[in-house]
Design a protein around this nucleic acid. Structure first.
Lengths: 238, 238
DNA sequence: ATAGGCATATTATATTACAAATAAATAAGA
DNA sequence: TCTTATTTATTTGTAATATAATATGCCTAT
């Protein structure tokens, strides 16, 4: 996925530290090691460490003050919509619980986005939705077509067509959620067509301006994934 | 609000640069001045400039590469859920359009959060909602009680009671939206009681576990603000 | 016992130097 | 003339070092 070799030192350091923090390597009371200690530990200069600290501060994970050292911020303050933070979180604890929270969020956002797209999505944006939906149908017939990417494009293009920058901003969030979902819920081969058709229906509702219908169909689509996850949770807790 | 004097140099620099970028001071083609030029312009060391650049990179506003300088990232990549970015955006263009997008977002999130709170909000969290709602009622009778803060607490505590960290994470977003809203929509004195009662009804629905009712009431509450904004937009466009 | 000052540790800022990367210009070859 | 290497210049990346600011806790003097 991410090519760490290509990144510069401070970015790699940011990633290392971020991962460690999210994974709970450091405690809130003890805080982080001092800059000097981090320099030694990773064999890099203070500049690189400081820039990593600044990055993580910007993401809400830590704060640093003179004489006090580098302190952990409570998890509530972490910027969860930051792609990196999200990735670290999932790498460290890919639990079903997080997955459920993802779906709850999508259940709030995506139906609303679909409704907005139906109300005033411009032609180009709506066409992109159709494209993606068509590709999902193709994938059902031809295994060579990438279903995953088509699915992802479908959901992303709806967020874009909503015309609301805050919704569209959540594309990485939704992408990540979908990616993680796939790992847990491999759809049965026969269901692919049925799923693709459900997606296409949403596109048709949007194109024809049926906001309520688009919203309901989208709710239903995500609800099915939710039901699946809840069954999984049931299973593991027993 | 924010005490810039108390902030350190790189944070102030981050704020200056961030504001300038969001306000459109720099063009995408030309990019930003080089580090050296920024040092001269603001009369500070390269370290401070670099740390500001790192912060803004972390927020998705810029990227920097050797020989290429500091480039602006497209607005789509900006982390809009970052409190600073949001603040810069509102300071530079406090338009009704942004306000409407805020409300569309709240319309997606808050009703769902209210439903979740009704389903499995723990007692302490739900009590906090009741507290805030009661304070809003008090404010209707006694002008000394801070209505604004109570209103804010009400919405924030519902996000918390949803038990979903992604919803709760949006508390700053909702706070900002409310703050901006207030500036545009000063409620008539007589309406305060009516509004407070609407809020209290939502609390009652949540406490008694009526998820659907809580959701509908919340939708209605935000919808009213939306209607108001749309009238304002109508007015200004004429 | 308490207030005020001092020592100390740690981050904040500054300065300088060199390394690395890359875009653009130039030269070489077909 | 066009393509391909190579060189060069510019800008960020990394490092090392020094000094300032600041918060903590100890310690002294009243």
């Amino acid at each position: 996925m991410v090519r760490f070799e290509k990144q510069n030192l401070s970015q790699r350091m940011t990633d290392e530290l971020g991962k460690a923090i999210v994974a709970g390597k450091y405690s809130a009371e003890a805080g982080l090691p001092t800059e000097a200690m981090l320099c030694e530990e990773y064999g890099i200069s203070r500049t690189a460490v400081r820039e990593a600290v600044k990055m993580l501060s910007a993401k809400g994970l830590i704060s640093s003050r003179p004489r006090q050292g580098i302190r952990l911020e409570p998890a509530e303050k972490w910027n969860m919509y930051d792609t990196s933070v999200l990735r670290w979180l999932l790498e460290s604890s890919p639990s079903l619980r997080v997955l459920k929270e993802f779906l709850q969020m999508r259940l709030a956002i995506e139906p609303q986005a679909a409704a907005l797209a139906a109300q005033h999505g411009d032609a180009v944006a709506v066409d992109a939705i159709g494209d993606a939906a068509q590709r999902m149908l193709d994938a059902a017939a031809d295994p060579a077509v990438d279903l995953m990417t088509a699915d992802l494009d479908f959901h992303t293009s709806i967020l874009r067509a909503s015309g609301n920058r805050f919704f569209f901003q959540l594309r990485d969030f939704v992408s990540t959620a979908l990616n993680v979902s796939i790992q847990h819920t491999t759809p049965a081969k026969g269901n692919v067509l049925s799923i693709a058709q459900d997606h296409y229906k949403i596109y048709e509702a949007i194109r024809s301006g049926q906001a309520e219908r688009a919203k309901n169909l989208m709710t239903h689509l995500i609800d099915e994934a939710m039901v699946f996850i809840e069954k999984e949770i049931e299973k593991t807790s027993n």
